[in-house]
């Protein structure tokens, strides 16, 4: 039976992505480790501060895994939430699991504790890149209802590989933030089709920002993550130089584009207007022939 990844909670996603019954949580809700900053703003706390971390197996191999709960303050990163992720990344450097898995679902820095959140995001970026230098394979999954924005969008792009669903959204500033700052003409955040064209999985896959595109289904995310356990890992000067050339080329080719279909057309998609409507298999048949490889 297929289960929607988008609609599942963090704990449901996590349970479905790793091997059944294999998850062991670190600092679980029973430990009552909550944010010390929310009470002064009369905000409720969560006993996991919006992120679940622990160890499990995936296809029989050991992984360390984190899942953010978009239903709690947008999955945003505060002091405790960030520290749980940081501890997990540092742990991966000594334990050397087959992968460090992130089930992202987060709008970025938690404003109620903005300074602690911003510093935490910067610590996470540094820690992930440091772990990658040591060869820790970092995989990110993006398909939750909260999307992956702001500081979390940066953290995600620091991973080795990303798996997205069409419903997943990945960007720096969210459409609402841009609309508030620049007006509805710049970005109409209520235009769902526009939001998905710009930030959604299909565009990110065509652009080479995501490595795999799957259906909105927990089992498909699981299969893609398992498949990537043997992907190349590491962070080297040569790889970063290649990325630089790709990003430079993207800027040169598409800097004057105003909407995603213009980019898809230039990539060589015959009928860009159809892209949002194509079922996944047909989309991949089109996209794999012309997309920018990550």
């Amino acid at each position: 039976m297929s289960r929607s990844y988008y609609e599942a909670s963090a704990r449901e996603r996590l349970a479905g992505v790793v091997d059944a019954g294999s998850f062991h949580e670190f600092v679980p809700p029973a430990a009552r480790v909550t944010s010390p900053h929310l009470a002064q703003l009369d905000q409720p706390v969560a006993f996991d501060d919006g992120v679940v971390v622990g160890r499990a197996t995936l296809a029989g191999r050991p992984v360390l895994v984190a899942a953010q709960e978009g239903g709690f303050l947008g999955g945003a990163i505060g002091e405790v939430h960030g520290a749980k992720l940081l501890g997990l990344i540092e742990r991966a450097r000594t334990e050397r699991p087959a992968a460090l898995l992130f089930l992202f679902d987060s709008g970025g820095v938690r404003l109620h504790e903005a300074n602690a959140g911003l510093v935490a995001v910067s610590e996470l970026i540094r820690a992930i890149l440091r772990a990658r230098r040591d060869g820790v394979r970092c995989l990110g999954l993006i398909g939750g209802a909260g999307g992956c924005f702001g500081g979390t969008g940066l953290i995600a792009r620091c991973c080795d590989r990303l798996v997205m669903s069409e419903e997943g959204r990945l960007a720096m500033s969210g459409p609402e933030v841009i609309e508030t700052a620049r007006g509805v003409e710049e970005f109409d955040s209520r235009d769902r089709a526009l939001v998905w064209r710009v930030t959604g999985g299909k565009h990110r896959y065509l652009l080479g920002e995501a490595d795999r595109l799957v259906e909105d289904d927990v089992d498909q995310f699981r299969a893609a993550a398992a498949d990537l356990l043997d992907s190349e890992a590491g962070l080297t000067l040569a790889a970063v130089e290649r990325e630089h050339a790709r990003l430079q080329q993207r800027w040169q080719r598409f800097a004057d584009c105003d909407d995603a279909p213009e980019i898809w057309q230039r990539l060589g998609v015959d009928n860009p207007a159809e892209v949002p409507l194509l079922p996944l298999d047909q989309f991949l048949a089109v996209a794999d022939g012309c997309r920018s490889a990550p």
């Binding site: 969008g153 960007a171 710049e186 920002e209 800027w251 909407d259 980019i263």
Partner: peptide, 20 residues
Amino acid sequence: LRRRDELLGLNGYMAHLAKC
């Protein structure tokens, strides 16, 4: 805060800078 920059994957460019 521009749609164009998000369209091109601004977070990917910024993450690239961090990697460098």
